[in-house]
Design a protein around this nucleic acid. Sequence first.
RNA 1: CGGGGUGUGGCUCAGCUUGGUAGAGCGCACGGUUCGGGUCCGUGAGGUCGGAGGUUCAAAUCCUCUCACCCCGACCA
Length: 520
Amino acid sequence: MDRVAGNEFFFPALIPHELLEESGRDKVDVLFTAKPHDYFLGFTHEEVITDVVRNTIKSYKQLPFLGYQIQTKFRNEPRPRGGLIRGREFLMLDAYTFDRTEEDALVAYKKVRESFGRMFTRCGLASIAIQADSGAIGGSLSEEFMVLSEDGEDTVLRCSVTGYAANAERCEAIPVPAEPADTEVPAMEEVSTPGVKTIDVVSGFLKVDATRLIKTLVFVAPDGSPVVALVRGDRELNEAKLGRTLGGPARLAEPAVVERVTGAPVGFAGPVGLPASVRIIADREVATVRDGVVGANKADAHFQHVLPGRDFPEPEYLDLRTAVAGDQSPIDASGVLYTQRGIEVGHVFYLGTKYSSSMRAEYDDVDGTAKFFEMGCYGLGVSRTFAAAIEQHHDADGIVWPITIAPYAVTIILVNPADPAQTEAAETLYSDLLAAGLDVLLDDRIERPGVKFKDGDLIGVPVKVTVGKGVADGGTLEIGLRRDRNSKQAVPIADASAHVLGLVKQLKDEIQANVDTHVV
RNA sequence: CGGGGUGUGGCUCAGCUUGGUAGAGCGCACGGUUCGGGUCCGUGAGGUCGGAGGUUCAAAUCCUCUCACCCCGACCA
């Protein structure tokens, strides 16, 4: 962060109620409130730094500005899980940029994005930046840093040709035609479907492939008006995409609203004969359904042989469905999407003036006029990064810490603490390495050797030194790397310290080489 | 909030279906043995079976209610 001219802060974890009222985020549901006063426990700090900046930065001459901090965040997650992966309290590096223009803001965005990439690489992690949804934070451009791991909780869609990667909720879904355009479609006809409500059941009951059903979902837009959304029966409507077209999160309408809008109980909604006042939007694939089945907007009935545009007005066609593995790549027509699992360790956003305008954070520009700051915000999950590092670096015996984030660089296992020669060799090396600035763990417990070896592997310190019978035999210690059991070799006691320092340097150099060549 | 699951010595769990004297492994204590990849043998301590109510001669076991935790989903660094 300092490399990209960041200014380190340490904001209060308690955020005054008024500040979140300004941005409207006092309604965010993960907030913890702090009594007796009207405070929230900090879940992210856009409002706080915006308040600081609007009070201190008055001129374009003070821009660009980057502030960051590393602090405990509090979010009342509905479902904490996976230990450090997702907790109600976690450590986060959060950064915020303030600029004059959108171009400057995007330059800042790029800088922080690269900085994040370097940090993950420096932590020994292989990460990728993917196209993402900006969610509750808001803003228009956003990418997530994912650490690929089989145990990850996120699904990443990737293009087989270009390597392009996107979060499933963001990835454009290329339409696959349901039926040939020249199909003859008989006249629409009502069929009785008593108690037949779900796609699966309708499909089975009418012996019609799910690709020919048009799923009709009623949502309530942010402004309170009902919106009818259509997707093909075998597809999943993507609420993030829907929210983007409606300008805010939409929620599925409750049964009473569905009945009021469609005149039918849930399960029989369809686009035919809806009031003209109701906005209807559809996934692009729906346009290719030529002999479809839809709810008849009355109980226990559906229409078959439905043709969009003939039997109901052409809706607005948009990308609304969730992309899936096997879809054509949106980047390269010859590519196919496939999925990978990942852990989200960082997220970067270009915000525009979302917060500066709602909080009236302005500076005087070159021409003397007051303008809102162009902002970006950036989050790096520190505690989660450690969890991701363990996911990416472990074996059957335990953790294999990357040297850069290992709690200790070296562990010295003193096999027999009752042997004065071994003890002296171990303690001498221990103090030499400490003097050289390394973090060293000396296991001089009175335990059987096997126990100490197992514990040492479990903890995963990258460089292992065994002080044992080699001391008496030939005046040697065994030195090796945790990641490779075959790497150990006998080293004369006099050379041990230098040898360890050499290995530590080698491990650090390997990671640095990755950082130097890393391109996000 | 919806779906599923689990609560039994310090820890991990078996026992519950088909009610009948609470078990194992690990850990702990003691004795011996072993001593470079979680030694082996023996002895021992330790639990009102998450809580409340009910059924029954008898409840860890069956029924009702309740609490807690875990997993899957909505959400997110």
